[in-house]
């Protein structure tokens, strides 16, 4: 019975803590740039500030533009219901729930893209075309990574595919676990529009991918978009944390502690990456994602052994 209640953690914590990830990334970047940087709570202030502002819609847009952020938010909310939390299984788990996860993100992306096209701006059209091109590749990497996990665990749901439950030899489990984690981390950089794929801080409309699609949003809509992208990042990081942590099926404080450590270390790592390398040339982005695909392919080959 107690586990049932603790399952709600998987929804409760991301809702409260996910904007903190952006705060941690920004603080890390500030540290490397030799700046004091904004408070880690700044993303919360931003969301609060945006909610109070007046909504302005472009006259060329239709209702699709207005509903798109809400649909995106619903999609990531629903995704939280199938995400395990620190070894505690998800509220709902069933065979192939990872496919639902991928396509919940897909649906959210579809509406972002359609809303971008709805504005009729040529920049947003370009951003949409880039987003769709790159996400078509990242999606396959995501599936490839999970296939590797399925192969070693013979389980088909996100709550079950912990490498620790595998019966294979440790010398296979460990490399698969690490390769898959790295691959998912790399695609999470692409999916969450971070450097080296996209630059969340740029104001240059011609080079942006994700940011350009939301140029026309203001106030509460923009707050919703920022909030949902932080939850999305949380989900990606928690997939990695769930791979690296043993699934306990009961509430373990150590496990929860390590879970948070992993998620926030990944945020710090993202910040370090953003501080130490430049953005890739747009042409090279597919090569970057294919690099991640190679890692997961190796994991799949190993898992077959």
């Amino acid at each position: 019975m107690s586990v049932q209640i603790f399952k709600l953690f998987s929804i409760f914590f991301p809702l409260i803590l996910s904007p903190l990830l952006f705060g941690v990334i920004n603080k890390t970047k500030a540290f490397f740039a030799g700046r004091k940087g904004m408070s880690v709570l700044q993303p919360y202030y931003d969301i609060f500030k945006l909610i109070q502002k007046e909504n302005i819609y472009s006259q060329t847009t239709s209702s699709i533009f207005k509903i798109s952020p809400v649909i995106g938010l619903i999609c990531v909310y629903m995704a939280l219901f199938i995400m395990p939390f620190a070894g505690i299984p998800a509220i709902f788990s069933f065979k192939g729930d990872f496919i639902l996860l991928a396509y919940l993100f897909g649906l959210s992306r579809f509406f972002t893209v359609v809303a971008a096209l709805d504005t009729g701006s040529s920049f947003e059209g370009m951003g949409a075309s880039r987003e769709v091109t790159f996400s078509a590749i990242t999606e396959s990497v995501f599936f490839l990574s999970l296939i590797a996990l399925i192969l070693i665990t013979k389980e088909y749901s996100l709550s079950g595919i912990s490498p620790y439950s595998s019966e294979k030899h440790f010398s296979i489990i460990l490399p698969v676990m690490l390769l898959v984690s790295v691959a998912i981390f790399l695609i999470s950089l692409a999916e969450n529009s971070r450097i080296p794929v996209d630059d969340p801080n740029t104001h240059l409309e011609l080079t942006m991918i994700h940011e350009v699609m939301i140029l026309d949003y203001s106030s509460a809509d923009l707050a919703v978009i920022q909030y949902l992208s932080s939850i999305k990042m949380w989900i990606f990081f928690s997939i990695i944390a769930n791979i690296l942590l043993p699934h306990t099926f009961y509430v373990s404080l150590t496990n929860i502690f390590y879970f948070f450590i992993i998620i926030f270390s990944l945020a710090v790592l993202t910040g370090i990456i953003e501080s130490s390398i430049a953005r890739l040339r747009m042409l090279k982005v597919p090569q970057f994602i294919i690099g991640a695909a190679c890692l997961s392919l190796i994991a799949v080959i190993l898992a077959f052994k």
Binding site: K29, A33, G34, R35, P196, D199, T207, E274, I277, R279
Partner: peptide, 13 residues
Amino acid sequence: LAADVGFLPTASY
């Protein structure tokens, strides 16, 4: 130029 390619340390210095 550093900021445009997303290379933060040089940009802020």
